Structures are given as structure tokens and as C-alpha cells.
Simulated assay, not measured.
Amino acid sequence: MLILAGTPIGNLGDASARLLATLEAATVLAAEDTRVAHRLLAGLHILNRPRLVIVNEQTERGRAAELVHLAADGDLVLVTDAGMPTVSDPGYALVRACVDAGVTVSSVPGPSAVLTALAVSGLPTDRFVFDGFAPRRAGDRMRYLAAVAREPRTTVLFESPNRLAALLQAMAEAFDPQRRVVVCRELTKLYEEVRRGSAAELAEWAAGGVRGEIVVLVEGAPASVASLEDGLAAVQRLLATGTGMKQAAAEVAEATGLAKHDLYEAALAAKHR
């Protein structure tokens, strides 16, 4: 079978007894980075030295047939650099190939930065959406944040430390000032930090430079129906990214239920003031 093994996201003390036993028994270990896998085995005092094969975004699809054969012939254990395989990490293509080939897929559950951040955030946890990484390009990012601004569930996403300040500044422009945002840094590690506040407050903090693994969480939108004024503001944010007026009115109308004609006319009138 294929065994997806969740590994610690920072603190090796979070490794479960079952993970230790699985790694100790593994004959073939598929890893996102073999150097990280070697450090993991050494840090957990695993005496077993399994055969290591690389499975990353560049190699996963091309090696799928070989890896499926290994899983069918004997257990194949998959680990990524940290956390649960397939969750914003390699593994999905391999899981899909194993499922299609009739090979059993199982897991050794482990830590998840998504769920850990959600649990400590102080934001609603009953309904949430995980969005991976925000778009890098400014226009794409603002269009994405316009959608997040309307999302009623808590949104969880990853971001690199060098792009965090720009993301938070864009959030400050896209969100209501009262919208709560949380930044979790270095979860489970020695310098773990959880910052809570408005996007503008957190953008000011991040402008000084931030290091480490980052998870950002955004409070869901209130359930109240959007007013035409709110809709116009959303259209204008999209216009600022280079989106055409008709397209911006259509996107906001679809998201809010407001009439596209009313949004277009309001935006047109505001443009000629």
C-alpha cells in the first residue's frame, strides 16, 4: 500500500509512536527532499535506513508508474518536508495514480499547519476554507482578495515571509477595517508567534521584516446583505487592478446578489464625478 505519513511541522516531539514505528519498518521512503528526510530520520533516532526516492512537484507525475509499482509490490511510505503529504505539498498525483491502479492508500496522521493555526487563531473554526498561497502578482492578488472579502467562512492560507507585508497591505485595502486577521509564525517551534489584529495593524508590524514559516487567517465576511455602496467599493477595488468596468460589475453582482446594471451605473457615475 501507499502510506501517507504526516511529519512534525517544527517540533520533533510531536512525532507519534505510530510514525516512529512506520519509519522504522519502511523499506522504501518517498521524500520531497532526501536531505530533509535524512535529518528527520536522524532527529527521530530511526536506525532503519530505507531506500530513498525523490517525490516532488517536478518528479511526481513522471515517476507515478514507478512509484505505483513500488507501492503495489510492498509498502511505500511518503513524507514531505513537514506536515501532511498532499496538503499544499507533493502527493496528490501519486495518490490519484494509486487509486486508479487499485493500490490501497492509507495514512499515519500527523501535524498540520492549517489545523494548528486554525485552532489557536481565535477565529471561528466550524467552517473554514484552505486556499494554499495567495497569487503573487498584484492584480491577481487584489482580485483574489476581493473574493476573500465576500467569503463567509474563515480563510486559511500560506505566505512566504518576504511577501507577507505586501499581502497584508493589500488586505488592508480590500477588507473592512474591522475584519480580523491572524498571522501565525513558526508554529510549534522555539520562536512561535501568533499576531492578531486588523490587516492594517499587521501590515505595519510585518513591514519591519518577518522570518519563518507563515500561516495567515482571515475572519469570514458578516452575513449581512451587501449594500450598493459596499458593492460600488468592491467594483472600484477591481477597477484599480485593471479589470474592465463591465467585468468588475458582473463579478461583484455574482458575489453579492446586487444588480449588475445598478453596479455599473453607480461606478460610471462615480467615475465622472
Results as ranks from 00 to 15, higher is better:
G102K: 01
A147T: 14
A71T: 07
L157R: 01
F158S: 01
E251H: 03
A221W: 09
A65M: 07
L168D: 06
P177Q: 03
L44F: 06
G132L: 05
K189E: 11
A42T: 11
L123P: 12
T154Q: 05
I9W: 09
E193L: 08
N48I: 03
P111Q: 14
S160T: 15
A207D: 14
S112W: 10
A5M: 08
S107C: 15
C98Q: 08
V235Q: 01
A72M: 05
A165M: 06
V77E: 11
L23H: 04
V79Y: 13
A200Y: 02
D73L: 11
L40I: 06
N11Y: 07
L239T: 09
D81Y: 13
T188G: 03
S88K: 02
N162I: 08
T27D: 14
T125E: 10
L78D: 10
G62A: 13
A166R: 14
A253D: 04
A199Q: 07
D33G: 08
A147K: 15
M1H: 07
R150V: 01
V210A: 14
V99M: 10
R49I: 00
E186A: 08
E192S: 05
V108P: 05
R18C: 11
R150M: 13
R49M: 01
R196N: 05
I3S: 03
L47V: 09
R211M: 10
L23D: 05
D131I: 01
W205K: 13
E254L: 13
D140T: 00
V53Q: 09
L190I: 13
T116K: 03
D81S: 12
K271W: 13
R49V: 07
A97Q: 12
V105C: 15
R96M: 06
A234K: 00
L20D: 05
D262M: 04
A234G: 00
A270N: 11
A199K: 06
V225P: 08
D75K: 02
G13S: 01
F128C: 00
E201D: 12
L40G: 08
S224C: 04
G6I: 03
H38Q: 07
S88C: 13
A259M: 04
V36N: 12
C98Y: 07
G6S: 02
I54Q: 09
L145S: 06
Q247G: 04
A223T: 09
N56T: 03
C184R: 07
V252F: 06
A64T: 08
E265V: 12
A82V: 05
T243H: 00
V181T: 14
R211P: 05
R35W: 06
L19D: 08
V68A: 10
A207N: 10
Y264S: 02
V53Y: 11
T34F: 02
A249G: 07
R61V: 12
A234R: 11
L20A: 13
A269Q: 11
R39K: 14
V129T: 15
L187F: 12
D176M: 05
G244K: 04
V103T: 14
F133E: 00
L52W: 03
A165N: 09
V215C: 15
T125Q: 14
T34L: 02
